[in-house]
Every structure is written in structure tokens, then in C-alpha cells.
Design a protein around this nucleic acid. Structure first.
Length: 389
DNA sequence: GTAGGGTTAG
């Protein structure tokens, strides 16, 4: 039985939450509550945990269709190219009473203030200093805006006496990958080779990660195959990226197969990879195997982290092994891990299913005491629980 | 001397 005081407190927090929320958030929240109310009033067994998601179809062929971005570097709206000259004071050297800026700092300040523009190009020319690829890479790494990075990279490329190396090319591949500029990546990759810089494992991993994050699974696998053709041996990062993107796309069998290949290659999994595969096995319905792998991980001296525990708790909760979830929850705490919002959310649901609403109340209070702000789904869940009383 | 990655819930 849920105490009245808890309901009152919860509703108080709920009203406060609603007052703080924006109109759109309130609308979303209203629909969340409606769903919770509808589901609890229509059937008592229709809690979120009971709702079965369709099993991912794991044998289908890849559907990623890659259309290269044909945008050219010269006309991709590089900031300021079409604007009048910006008259901004740029600090590029010694100022009385202050320390001398390094070349890297000076260039970064120019690019930060002027982005890529005729003004920044002029300021860079005025600096009149020779940059080496190491410094160029230090600068590139600090550029958040890919358009600035592209402008600076190609400005460097045409500078007499300057030559990009594998590091600067790889950094640039990463920057373009984050921006999902695949047409530009292809162009750059070709230039890297004609420039005599051999792509290495870091370059290939960046490509795989970029394609994977954009859901271009075929292209990511293509890079994986290509790198092996040129005898670049995949490492942990390669396998981890491929396992992750396949698991996320529902190709659980491919992910598990990659894990086996990784082991065959003599690469031992780390906490991150174990977590990915444990989740994969559990989602594919192999909970015993997932649990076994969790035990193996511990026995191998690989320490589970909070996410590993959250995965294990959630997998057992989904399989309705609520006591196992609670046992893992306690084990996690005795191992010194503080639950986070994800843990609390799962555990409240588990306790709700077990009928321990007083304990769910205590967890809710603890969650708030530890400054975790309950979000819409958590409120939706609790509204559903109250409605069921 | 530099370069690569990120997992979990509803």
C-alpha cells in the first residue's frame, strides 16, 4: 500500500515539474501520462516491462544506402567567404605586460574569433610563421567547426614548404566524420594516398566509426574489409566499433560473430566490449550466456562498471527475473557503485512488479535526495503505479 | 612528441 504522504509529495514534485516544463514538454508529459493511465486501466499486466518489443530481425541484408555527398570544398559555405572583410582586432603576438602567445595559441585565437574567412586568412598570412605538421595537428584538434578545419587544412596544404602528414590527415578524417561529410572524406582519403601518406589503423577506425554512427553499415564493413586487404590489422577499437554499430542496428548475430572473430584474433575484451556483448546476448534471448559472460568478465579481472551493472539488472528485469535484478542491484552497491538515474528507473519498475511499492517509494525518495531529477517516463511510470492501487 | 572509441531503461 502506498502511503498518502508519498502520493502527496510525488504529486507536489510532479506539479513543480510541470510548472518548470516548457509547453512542448508538458504536452509530451501529458501524452506519457495518458499512455500510462490507459495501459494501467485497460490491463493490470500491461506495465512497461510486459510490453514486448518485436525481436530484431537479425538475418536481413544490410539496408544502408550510401549516397556520396558531392559537395565541393570550395562552395560549401565556408563561413565568411562571401561576406565583407571583418574588422576585428586579433591578438597574434606579444602584448605589453602579457606573455607571448605560442604560434599554436595565436592561430587558434584567430580561427576562433574569425572562423574561416578572408580576414582569418589575412591574419594567418600576417603571422608569417612556419607551422610544422605537429603544430598543425594541435590546431586542427581544437577546431570544433568542420568548415573552419577544412579551410585551415587546405590553406596549409597550399602553403609553400608545408606538407600534411598521416596525423593531420587522420585528424581531418575524424573532423569530417563527425560532421558526416562523406563526400569530403572520400576526396580527402584519395588525397592522403596521392600525397604519400599511408592510412593506418587510426585512420581506418575513424572511418568505420564515422560510417557506423551515420548508420552506413555497409560502408563501415567495406572499410573493415578494405583495411584487411591492405594488411592493416584490426584492433580492439575496430572490433568494438563494429560490434557496437551492428548491435545498435539489431544485427545481434553479426555482433556476436564479430566478438568471436575478435577473440580469434587474440584480442581480449575490455569492460566496454564485455558490456556490449553481454547486452547483445541478453537481447538475443541468451540470458544464461550473458550471465556467464558477466561472471567470466569478473574472473578475468575485468571490473564491471555502472553501465555493465545497469545492463545486467535491466536484462534480468526484462526476463522477469526480478529477484536476480534486485540481487545484482545490491551486489552493485556493495561493490561501491552509486546507482544512477538509469539504475533507479529500472529498480523502481522491478519493485513495482514485485508489489513492493513502499520500497519503490523509498527508492524514489533516495533518487531525489541524490539530486537525480525524475524525468517524464519516470513520472509516467509512477502515475501508472498510483492508478493501479 | 601527436592520430582512433563508447556501452545501459522506459
Amino acid at each position: 500500500m502506498v502511503g498518502y504522504s508519498w502520493c502527496e509529495e510525488f504529486l507536489g514534485s510532479f506539479v513543480m515539474f510541470c510548472n518548470k516544463a516548457s509547453e512542448s514538454k508538458r504536452a509530451t508529459l501529458a501524452s506519457t501520462i495518458l499512455v500510462a493511465v490507459k495501459s494501467s486501466s485497460s490491463s493490470r499486466s500491461s506495465d512497461p516491462c510486459d510490453r514486448k518489443k518485436p525481436i530484431p530481425q537479425i538475418s536481413r541484408s544490410y539496408s544502408g544506402q550510401f549516397t556520396p555527398n558531392t559537395q565541393k570544398f570550395g562552395d560549401n559555405n565556408l563561413d565568411g567567404f562571401t561576406r565583407p572583410m571583418i574588422q576585428t582586432k586579433v591578438m597574434t603576438g606579444a602584448v605589453p605586460g602579457t606573455r607571448q602567445f605560442s604560434v599554436v595559441e595565436s592561430v587558434c585565437r584567430i580561427l576562433h574569433q574569425l572562423k574561416w574567412s578572408p580576414a582569418s586568412e589575412e591574419a594567418l598570412e600576417k603571422l608569417n610563421c612556419a607551422l610544422d605538421p605537429y603544430q598543425a595537428n594541435q590546431i586542427l584538434k581544437q577546431l570544433q567547426d568542420y568548415r573552419v578545419a577544412v579551410g585551415f587544412f587546405y590553406w596549409l596544404k597550399q602553403r609553400p614548404g608545408f606538407k600534411h602528414d598521416g596525423h593531420t590527415y587522420t585528424t581531418m578524417v575524424g573532423i569530417l566524420g563527425r560532421a558526416r561529410e562523406f563526400g569530403a572524406i572520400n576526396k580527402l582519403f584519395g588525397q592522403m594516398i596521392t600525397d604519400g601518406c599511408k592510412p593506418n589503423i587510426a585512420t581506418y577506425n575513424r572511418l568505420i566509426h564515422s560510417y557506423g554512427r551515420a548508420n552506413y553499415l555497409n560502408e563501415a564493413v567495406g572499410v573493415f574489409n578494405q583495411m584487411q586487404k591492405v594488411r592493416c590489422v584490426p584492433d580492439r577499437v575496430t572490433y568494438r566499433a563494429l560490434i557496437d554499430i551492428h548491435a545498435k542496428s539489431g544485427y545481434l548475430d553479426v555482433a556476436i560473430n564479430l566478438y568471436q572473430r575478435m577473440q580469434e584474433a587474440g584480442l581480449s575484451p575490455d569492460t566496454f566490449t564485455y558490456s556490449l556483448i553481454i547486452n547483445c546476448l541478453g537481447k538475443a534471448g541468451h540470458l544464461t550466456a550473458a550471465h556467464k559472460l558477466f561472471c567470466e568478465m569478473v574472473s578475468q579481472g575485468c571490473v564491471p562498471n555502472l553501465v555493465t551493472y545497469n545492463i545486467m539488472i535491466a536484462l534480468h528485469a526484462k526476463a522477469r527475473k526480478y529477484q536476480c535484478s534486485l540481487q545484482l542491484y545490491r551486489g552493485m552497491q556493495s561493490s561501491g557503485f552509486e546507482p544512477d538515474k538509469v539504475t533507479y528507473s529500472i529498480i523502481m519498475e522491478v519493485l513495482g512488479h514485485c508489489g513492493h511499492l513502499d520500497e519503490a517509494e523509498a527508492v524514489f525518495a533516495e533518487m531525489k535526495r541524490k539530486n537525480w531529477i525524475p524525468d517524464e517516463p519516470v513520472y509516467g511510470l509512477l502515475v501508472g503505479k498510483i492508478w493501479q492501487r
